[in-house]
Nucleic acid binder design. Structure first.
Length: 572
RNA sequence: GGGCCCGUAGCUCAAUGGUCAGAGCAGACCGCUCAUAACGGUUUGGUUGGGGGUUCAAGUCCCUCCGGGCCUACCA
């Protein structure tokens, strides 16, 4: 038994996430957490909403709510949707928590004491009409390079030229449209990442077996141009964690807050503390997961995230932890994902293109989405959601292969023997062959799950389901009924034990259907992971009662698929 | 502009430099009748994007060209 710490990248508070966000971090993290729990490890699975920053303030203003209320409401919405997808977080925290405020201020104090914080006077664009400094992205104007009129202050999306806000012709606020802008001086804290470059590189270079996607992005940032740059960790905003040195004020930084990307990863730790608080576990309760000097030495920590998050998790956050000169637990493995596209293009919130998490759950139960998304997770390159692929995948794998297997064996037993495992007969060569096949597949499945090779694991699981249909076809109990009812009984027993085995093995992917299978067999979710295929085939004895379950997975027909395609095609 | 990733069967993807490049889906044929018109078996299908090189041996390594995607630090 090991101790496994798992974090998923934090979903931003602003709005409901689409399927691409789900599949890029939370869902595979949940798969890993569920598997590790099933194997008897002590697992702590942490996620939270990332609540600070300009977009949250603007979204709250648009909704006509104070930002704190807006965030509280959206946290609830995201939590309910996460529950709907059966994301098994041990704690779903909030980066606006008091725990995170204290920890973030603590890290700032430590970094300052270590000489890793510079105070830098910056010149930034201020909008009088909006009463706020504008991030580069929120300044629009005409591109000096191509004349595009809606170029943003950081980059022109028409000609892709990198810009500085002061390059723009006729700059205006993207928020209000106001042209009453001026450049003001404002002081900010910079994290001296450049000073930690060698240290970070050594660390990255000694990580073994990390995905290329993870290390290549990290190296690019370490080596690009003049190398890793210092990074501003504060902002002129109202909504955020006040800049302080621990509990003490930070002279000259009054009224400023930490940048979301500084405080968001710290929330991984803070959320663990929130979890410990909620369970009355005290300070030790969370520190044993995060402090190498207080018990975290044997923790294996894995982070899940989309590729856009990699620089912050490979560089900025480790720099924060290392720079504190305290023995904080560093990540052991970063599993990063590419993007999921929608019908050949990008998911788009603004044009209503693609499926969002709340809509998905209205259409079909969580398991359908979990299965398709995980078995098509963008592991080695971007992948594409299409309704055709989704329909084909869930109909074939879930309805035809798994669902129909459960259906045929339970119904056959009910009509010939009644709703209890029948007695008689002894396993023979067919059963030995089945056990051998299952052993091979199970080893493959376990290896892939341990290595977090998600697609491969899904393939292995599917092959295990297929093995049941192959076995029934070979053993043909419907034929044996005539000549040897006892042998048929033994085959049916074996088949019903396969249902139990499938429920246990499939639970990380499709927890609800697995639960329904266990319930039908009169079992609970406490059924242990199989010791061996042979043992699993004889786990339930003759006489064990069951109920014939309803159809586990209904099929998605062409008519409905076409309607869904049309509904989510977007405005333009 | 710079960097990274990818290009393999009609589609989605596999293949520590080493047997005849393999799976699933789709297609074709056969079987089965327990089951959600489901299941099983057999089978068609490849100049591994083009060209050059290294090697006893290249889908894999190197060069180059073509095509696609992503990142590029103030969206998060």
């Amino acid at each position: 038994m090991a101790r496994i710490l798992i974090t998923s990248a934090l979903p931003y508070i602003n709005g409901i996430k689409h399927l691409g966000n789900l599949v890029g971090s939370q869902l595979p993290a949940d798969l890993h957490a569920r598997y590790m729990r099933a194997r008897g490890h002590e697992v702590l699975f942490i996620c939270a909403t990332d609540e600070h920053g300009t977009p949250a303030e603007l979204a709250a203003a648009k909704a006509g709510e104070p930002v704190a209320e807006y965030c509280a409401r959206m946290w609830r919405v995201q939590k309910d949707i996460a529950d709907g997808f059966r994301l098994s977080f041990d704690h779903f925290g909030r980066s606006s928590s008091d725990r995170n405020r204290r920890l973030t201020q603590h890290f700032a104090e430590r970094l300052s004491a270590a000489g890793l914080i510079d105070e830098v006077m910056e010149r930034q664009v201020y909008s009088k009409a909006d009463g706020r400094f504008l991030p580069d992205r929120y300044i629009e104007g005409t591109c000096p390079n191509c004349g595009y009129e809606k170029a943003r202050g950081d980059q022109c999306e028409n000609c892709t030229k990198q810009l500085d806000p002061t390059d723009l012709i006729n700059p205006r606020s993207a928020i209000s449209g106001s042209t009453d802008l001026e450049v003001r001086e404002t002081k900010h804290l910079h994290l001296r990442q450049s000073a930690m470059r060698a240290h970070l590189r050594d660390w990255i270079d000694t990580r073994e077996g990390w995905p290329v996607l993870t290390t290549s992005i990290a190296r690019k940032w370490l080596d690009d141009g003049e190398g890793l740059q210092d990074r501003s960790i504060t902002r002129d905003l109202d909504w955020g964690i006040p800049v302080q040195k621990g509990e003490k004020p930070w002279p000259g930084m009054e009224g400023k807050v930490f940048y979301v990307w500084f405080d968001a990863p710290i929330e991984y730790i803070a959320a663990t503390a929130e979890w410990a608080d909620a369970h009355g576990l005290g300070e030790d309760g969370w520190r044993r997961w995060w402090r190498a000097d207080e018990g975290a030495g044997d923790v294996r920590y894995t982070q899940f995230m989309g590729k856009d998050n990699v620089p912050f998790h490979t560089l900025s956050f480790p720099a924060t932890l290392m720079g504190s000169a305290e023995p904080w637990k560093l990540v052991d493995y970063i599993k990063s994902f590419n993007y999921l596209n929608y019908e050949g293009g990008k998911f788009s919130t603004s044009s209503g293109r693609g499926v969002f998490m709340d809509q998905a759950l209205e259409i079909l139960p969580a398991d359908y989405w979990r299965w398709w998304l995980l078995s098509n997770v963008p592991e080695s390159s971007d992948s594409d959601f299409t309704w055709e692929s989704f329909q084909n995948g869930v109909n074939k794998d879930l309805a035809d292969v798994l669902g129909n297997f459960v259906s045929r064996i339970t119904k056959f037993c009910r009509s010939r023997f009644g709703e209890a495992l029948p007695e008689g007969g002894a396993p023979g060569p067919e059963e030995a062959e089945l056990a051998a096949e299952l052993s091979r597949r199970l080893a493959e499945y376990e290896r892939a799950m341990e290595a977090i090779e998600v697609r491969r694991a899904a393939q292995a699981l599917r092959a295990i389901w297929v093995a049941g249909n192959e076995y029934l076809q070979r053993a043909a109990p419907w034929t044996k009924m005539k000549e040897s009812p006892e042998e048929a009984a033994m085959i049916v027993r074996t088949g019903l034990n396969l249902v139990r085995l499938y429920a246990i093995l499939s639970r990380p992917f499709i927890p609800d259907a697995a639960g329904a299978m266990l319930t039908a067999l009169g079992l609970t979710e406490n059924e242990p992971w199989p010791e061996s295929a042979e043992a699993a085939l004889a786990a339930l004895p003759s006489g064990h009662a069951f109920t014939t379950p309803d159809v586990l997975f209904a099929k998605l027909d062409d008519e409905r698929r076409e309607a869904l395609e049309a509904r989510f095609a977007g405005k333009g």
